[in-house]
Design a protein around this nucleic acid. Structure first.
Length: 490
RNA sequence: GGUACCGUGGCCGAGAGGCUAGGCAAGGCUCUGCAAAAGCUUCUACAGCAGUUCGAAUCUGCUCGGUACCUCCA
């Protein structure tokens, strides 16, 4: 284990930042609630999965062997919890005259493509709800056997009030149970539940319902919290280290998930609950139902009405990582533009790194920089502070490049290793402007040589023409002491 | 209506009782044929009011403003 690993994590369960101690080091089990694949993922979803991607990457970087499980919800959930309405996948299938599994396939592929676009690593296991119907039926049986559920007209409900008498049902959300029970807000929809907080484990399929499976209680489909309980237990055990998801899942989905696990196994399933905050647009949560969501391609092409132009995936990733995962982050042109510039500056410095030569003494403190980066990351994955520290490093690199400072080989190696590890491995950023093509590089060298020759004979009209022309096609020439270099701009 | 959270300089966004956040933008300087890039540098903020304290952006109370959850949502 890396000696730097005194990692602290904010735990929603305790509302405190706690030292991270895995159950079976060096192994770490992490479960994150994935998407329901009935439509395209939007940037808010991307933010959450990007946050967990960095968490996954950093845990691995610290030397942990992480099993990262992220489900794909492909069994339709009802549009409301009140037992009325259609399931979302079924509805979409009917509207588009497709088989539900065609809908599932389309949006699963879209989801994976988007994840790859933003350089999110694939999880270790990506289980689907429909692939675990048997496990969910078994779990329902067990909960029934244990007395925490009841059948009502072919639907199995979880008995929240009974459970809450024995276990702290609202522990995660911090809600007051009595207030929840007595909340006068009318949810509408008559159903067969005994208690207003009860939720379905298994739902009887109506004749028109497309996605259905046989069960001991007739044909039906699983309730919308059950898959996560069943699959996390299957792949990570009855008790595991980390469970994550968006903040909006806390009061209902995760609360019910915990209840199901305890009712089934009599064990608290998760030690550390991590929740990511929302991406907002003009201060308002980005969500499908509010209709203010940005799709990844709208962002990249700039086709969204609220955008002046497009932004690259890495610009967006960098933008997201400049805010802490537990804060809301507001999406705007100005913020994206600032992130783009900053990201470029960071990557320009990274590109200089291989060219730096060691000196006979060190005039910069690389070890201090390294410490501050790890201190930030160990403090609940504080990427904005880590990035701030990285910009100290950018200054170092530029100063070294200008020959105004020097580092001995050991320190230089440390600086290079730090940037490699943090920028690429942990933050998951990547160079996207550099063509990295030796032919292009050769061509550019030829052009820059011609320009240098023109400059040498003081033919500035020609040299400026070359520079302006390159700029017009998106290549920026940078004149340095050691000659000219180039980089691609957007 | 209930329950939480938030309000930081031109913008984004960290921090969390005394100690520089950082990025972008803007101004100045260095370098340069000119520019760009790069470097140096300037800009000192914490919604308002009251309180606790030697000391508060950071703690407490109130006020105002905003958001989230309570209903599918990452």
């Amino acid at each position: 284990m890396n000696s730097r690993s005194n990692l602290k994590i904010y735990n929603t369960l305790t509302r405190k930042t706690e030292l991270f101690e895995p159950i079976h080091p060096p192994f770490v089990g992490m479960y994150v609630c994935g998407p329901t694949v009935y439509s395209n993922v939007h940037l808010g979803n991307v933010r959450t999965f990007t946050s967990f991607d960095v968490i996954f990457r950093y845990l691995q970087h610290l030397g942990y062997k992480v099993r990262y499980v992220r489900n794909v919800t492909d069994a339709g959930h009802l549009e409301s919890d009140a037992d009325v309405g259609e399931d979302k996948i079924g509805k979409k299938a009917r509207l588009e005259q497709l088989e539900p599994m065609e809908i599932v396939q389309r949006y699963t592929v879209d989801f994976r493509n988007v994840m790859a676009l933003f350089n999110n690593l694939p999880p270790s296991i990506e289980p689907t709800a429909t692939g675990h119907i048997i496990e969910q039926i078994e779990m329902t049986k067990q909960i029934l056997n244990n007395g925490y559920a009841y059948e009502s007209n072919g639907t199995i409900y979880f008995d929240v009030e009974k459970f809450a008498k024995e276990y702290p049902y609202t522990e995660l959300s911090g809600r007051n149970l009595d207030e929840l029970l007595n909340n006068t807000r009318d949810l509408g929809g008559q159903d067969d539940k005994k208690g207003r907080l009860d939720f379905a484990l298994w739902i009887k399929a109506k004749p028109e319902h497309l996605m259905r499976w046989p069960s001991p209680w007739g044909e039906g489909f699983p309730g919308w919290h059950l898959e996560c309980s069943a699959m996390s237990a299957k792949y990570l055990g009855n008790q595991f280290d980390i469970h994550g998801g968006g903040l909006d899942l806390v009061p209902t989905h995760h609360t019910n998930e915990i209840a199901q696990n305890i009712a089934c196994h009599h064990e608290k399933p998760v030690n550390y609950w991590i929740h990511t905050n929302m991406l907002t647009v003009n201060g308002q949560k980005m969500s499908k139902s509010l209709g203010n969501s940005f799709l990844p391609h709208e962002l990249i092409t700039g086709s969204h009405p609220l955008l002046d132009r497009g932004y690259s995936p890495m610009t967006v990733r960098f933008f997201m990582l400049q805010a802490h995962y537990r804060s809301t982050l507001d999406f705007s042109n100005e913020a994206l533009q600032a992130a783009e510039k900053g990201f470029q500056r960071l990557m320009n410095a990274v590109a200089l790194l291989p060219k730096l030569q060691a000196g006979t003494q060190s005039t910069l403190k690389v070890a201090d920089l390294e410490d501050s980066v790890y201190e930030a990351l160990n403090d609940d994955f504080n990427t904005p502070i880590a990035i701030a520290a990285l910009f100290e490093g950018v200054r170092m690199i530029n100063t070294l490049n200008d020959g105004k400072a020097s580092l001995i080989q050991e320190d230089l190696d440390k600086l290079k290793a730090l940037f490699q590890a943090i920028v690429f491995d942990v933050l998951g950023l990547k160079e996207e402007n550099q063509a990295d093509n030796s032919k292009v590089d050769g061509l550019m060298q030829l052009i820059l040589d011609q320009r240098a020759a023109a400059k040498a004979r003081r033919d500035f009209a020609s040299s400026d023409q070359i520079r302006d022309h390159l700029k017009a096609i998106g290549i920026e020439v940078k004149d340095g002491k050691e000659g000219s270099t180039y980089s691609f701009i957007n």
